[in-house]
Simulated assay, not measured.
Amino acid sequence: MEATVAITEAQQKKVKPDPETLKFGKTFTDHMFTMDYTSDLGWIQPEIKPYAPVEIDPAAMVFHYSQSVFEGLKAYKNPNGEAVLFRPEENFKRLNRSNKRLSIPPINEELALDYLKQLIELEKDWIPSAEGTSLYIRPFVIATEPSLQVAPAHNYKFFIILSPVGSYYPEGIHPVSIMVEDHFTRAARGGTGTAKTGGNYSAGYNAQAKAASEGHAQVLWLDGVEKKYVEEVGSMNVFFKINGEIVTPQLNDSILQGVTRKSVIELLKHWNIPVSERKIPMQEIFDAYESGELEEAFGSGTAAVISPIGELTWKDSTMIVNGRKTGEVTKSLYQTLTQIQTGKQEDPFGWTVKI
């Protein structure tokens, strides 16, 4: 397969949205990328074409057995007006890890990144430049073979769609309230928790609705067996600062390997701040709070980058973290990562990719 892609430009271009009114995932650009897979020919027909609805057979296996995976990353504009990606190679590596877990054929990561660059080059005028805005990138793969057999499909389609998004914190970064979920389970070891697949997210809607009804922004998941160990927060990985040390749950078969999580750990080590990945009992978090050693808590993910946690509710107890104020380490991580992503600060790690 060559790194060439057929490009068909849209005859009519959409009106660009007002950056001040952008909502997450509601507006889409003029073009999208698609590529097909057949068991006989492999991945074929890469093309960029006008964004449009897709015709698909009602018996397509994605509808019946949820054989699908997706990714999420962003493009930014740096001060020179250039389009910049943040660690995109990590997202395509993770896409292939998800593919493997869902029995989907792997994609060529280097070619996928090249195709993405060509799509971004065509759509670079869609990247908003207002503070906190970006172009959200959604690569995904679905099983398209029309069959009701319970087996991996023989046909797939790989898409990349783009959506300009507003600032996650339009009024500034602020701590959120989190409910610790001790009934529902997001994932268990040996399941699909480490894969980025849709079912992991829809399975959390019940718990999220319960949390929202009680005034919480997110759910903190515990392990699926003992309901004892901290795993992750909704769509984010989670970190705690306890007595000067940053701790985060170690990776296992039920925790997503976040790209922002990896960047946070590498940045903390660069700053010589103690950081460890290990099993964290929820009781340890509560005990640290009771003793005054729970100093900060935050989540990390593509959408918010860093989301400070100001309150944790577990069983009948509510823990107020750092007086519901954003901690110094949390603030530094947010500022540094966002400034590296947008090219406003030097990137000593080689994380950013200019297009």
Rank of each mutant, 00 (worst) to 15 (best):
A209N: 12
L73G: 05
R324K: 14
I306F: 08
R324H: 15
Y229S: 13
T336A: 04
T194E: 14
E90C: 11
R97P: 07
N155R: 14
T185W: 06
V150S: 11
A303Q: 01
T4I: 12
I178D: 03
D36H: 12
L41V: 01
Y205N: 09
I309D: 08
V230I: 15
P53M: 01
I285G: 00
N252H: 13
L111D: 12
K227R: 15
G343W: 01
A212V: 13
E328M: 10
P128Q: 08
E2C: 08
F140K: 06
A212K: 15
Y115T: 10
A59S: 14
H216I: 04
V259Y: 09
M1R: 13
V275F: 02
I48R: 06
S291W: 04
K196W: 06
G81K: 12
Q283M: 14
S177L: 03
M61T: 15
A6P: 07
T318W: 02
K74R: 03
N91G: 11
L251K: 11
V233E: 00
L85H: 09
V141Y: 04
R278L: 13
I242F: 06
Q149S: 14
A6Y: 10
A288T: 00
I309G: 04
E89D: 15
F184A: 14
I178V: 15
N96I: 07
D287Q: 13
T192E: 06
E296R: 11
M61D: 04
H64E: 07
K14R: 13
K241E: 10
T34A: 14
V69W: 01
N108Y: 06
L294I: 10
A297Y: 01
D316W: 08
K227N: 15
K16L: 15
I7E: 03
T338N: 12
E110C: 04
L95A: 09
L268A: 09
S68H: 05
I104W: 01
D223K: 10
A297I: 02
R261S: 03
V247A: 00
N243W: 00
W351K: 03
L22W: 01
M61W: 02
S98K: 07
D125R: 10
Q341F: 11
E82G: 13
F159P: 00
K279N: 13
K100I: 02
N99H: 15
D30V: 05
P249T: 11
K325D: 12
Q118H: 14
I178L: 01
S163C: 05
V264M: 00
R261T: 07
V264N: 01
A209M: 14
K269F: 08
G323P: 00
V233T: 09
P50L: 03
N322T: 07
L251D: 02
F158G: 08
Q345W: 10
A288E: 02
R97D: 12
D18P: 07
P152I: 08
S300G: 09
P281K: 09
K269I: 12
K74G: 02
E266K: 12
I104G: 03
A187K: 01
E277G: 08
V84D: 04
E231Y: 02
P170I: 02
I246M: 13
I265M: 15
G172R: 11
R87F: 09
E71T: 08
V165D: 06
K354Y: 11
